[in-house]
């Protein structure tokens, strides 16, 4: 009965997926309840902001610069056909602030910092460090998980802002310095067309949501990892894959909600 087997396999997968989602939701609520230490001893969170944020700076800045430069090249190529090459600044800025900044930095954040957080927590579990903490009457969710989660949530919007800023700088270097688009038009059009509430704040909200999602996936996968070398490796892979898909899905939903009328 291959058809029955197929349905059974699909049912099992769906069932497992729902169960895991519920488990993740309970984990999230437990972590929120145990997050006091992440703020009362803020130095723990600052340390994680350093590991997830500061150590991701290079990859964010370099990627942002190149994305901005490519945007300027492609944008100029299209805009000049319609005689509106002076709108290059607006195109670069809006693309980055609304979309590419949060999304690309979210993807980079997942692969650079999210994977590192998962691997670290997973290895702590595999080497019994979390069990040792429990036996010392220290809750690992409060002491290890919550500071890493909040560190990621705080770092992500800052990284996205930096990505957008360096992207605009890259667009300026290519558009104005290399191609020769008028500098005044580049900046003034950008200033007049980019709306603080509609564009920048919504971009920040997106990056904040991505920060929550990626950080949650990273700490959950690490904490839930099978405590073996293979288990940690699988958990790290799942963090990157799941985070990437969730970012793109959430981006679609958020874009549909935010920019409906504009």
């Amino acid at each position: 009965m291959p058809l029955a087997d197929l349905f059974q396999a699909i049912g099992r997968r769906v069932n497992n997926g729902i169960w895991r989602l519920g488990y993740a939701a309970r984990f999230f609520l437990t972590m929120l309840g145990r997050s006091g230490i992440a703020f009362s001893r803020f130095s723990l969170t600052v340390k994680e902001i350093y590991f997830t944020g500061v150590l991701s700076l290079i990859v964010i800045v370099v990627s942002g610069l190149f994305v901005g430069m490519v945007l300027a090249l492609q944008g100029y190529n299209t805009l000049q056909r319609y005689g509106s090459s002076e709108a290059l600044g607006v195109l670069v800025a809006l693309s980055l602030v609304r979309e590419l900044g949060p999304v690309v930095s979210g993807l980079l954040f997942a692969s650079r910092a999210g994977s590192a957080v998962t691997a670290e927590i997973g290895l702590m579990k595999a080497t019994e460090q979390l069990s040792a903490m429990e036996m010392m009457a220290v809750n690992p969710i409060a002491r290890v998980v919550a500071p890493r989660f909040w560190g990621g949530v705080i770092a992500m919007p800052l990284l996205a802002a930096l990505f957008s800023a360096t992207g605009i700088l890259g667009g300026y270097l290519i558009g104005v310095i290399l191609i020769g688009v008028d500098e005044g038009a580049f900046w003034s059009q950008m200033q007049s067309m980019v709306d603080f509430r509609e564009d920048i704040v919504n971009g920040v909200i997106k990056s904040l949501v991505f920060g929550v999602l990626v950080s949650l996936i990273a700490v959950f996968e690490g904490y839930d990892a099978v405590p073996t070398a293979e288990g940690v490796s699988n958990a790290t892979t799942r963090t990157v894959v799941t985070s990437s898909l969730v970012i793109l899905f959430a981006d679609f939903i958020l874009t549909a909600l935010m920019f409906r009328g504009s």
Partner: peptide, 11 residues
């Protein structure tokens, strides 16, 4: 207090 097999020191 519990001593784990390989110490479980915080690395």
């Amino acid at each position: 207090g519990m001593l784990f097999q390989f110490g479980a020191l915080f690395t």
